[in-house]
Amino acid sequence: MSVNIIKLKIDGVEVTVPEGTAILKAAKDSGIIIPTLCNLEGLTAYGGCRLCLVEVSGTPKLFPACSTPVGPNMEITTQSDKLKEYRKMAVQMLLAERTHICSVCVADDHCELQAMANQLGVDHVMFERNWSQDEIDSTHDFLVIDRNRCILCTRCIRVCDQIEGVHTLDLKLRGKDSQVIMDLDEHWGNSCSCTSCRKCAKVCPVGAIYIEGEPIEHTKKRDIAEFIVERRNRR
């Protein structure tokens, strides 16, 4: 099957990519980085964090770059005042949603949410902070989940299902009450399907899942995307 090569414009730069490529990847290939939190190369696109929203000329709608395929002659804007405002809004909502205190977080300085806030210039949170107080589950030998720091990006769920092939992790409840759970809401230590592969901790963008006793800079390596792709290819 031959793939059509198409031309389009991203931020005014002409780009040539195979038809069907996601906007995010097309942009990355030409050196334009679109902010994301839930997306991770090697896993299916989720479209949840809404940070990668971009403008496409001809429609007032915004599109998530991670899951929207490019079309011929598309004109895409990845940076505008509105988009910047909206990205800051998303980060503020995430920071206000649960309990995020960088100074007492294991992932401090290795956290993608923190880095995103810095990068976008989020200097305050316009909403009342909702200090959640969920119990920390440290029943597993070395994997710990602190759901107060979770941003529900579901990278852990997807990596467990799509790369490790186990599907120990999933979501329970809905809306603001959503939580990442193990098996049928067991304590992690009682999970009979978890293979203790650590992938969930490695892909977690924040300090919600971490490995006890392992230096955080080792767990949350920035080149995790390559790690995932390499693992996937090896399978």
Binding site: Y46, G48, R50, L51, L173, K176, S178
Partner: peptide, 14 residues
Amino acid sequence: SCGKCTPCRAGLAR
């Protein structure tokens, strides 16, 4: 809200 996307899940609650 199903809880998938930030604006609907976190925003509406705010």
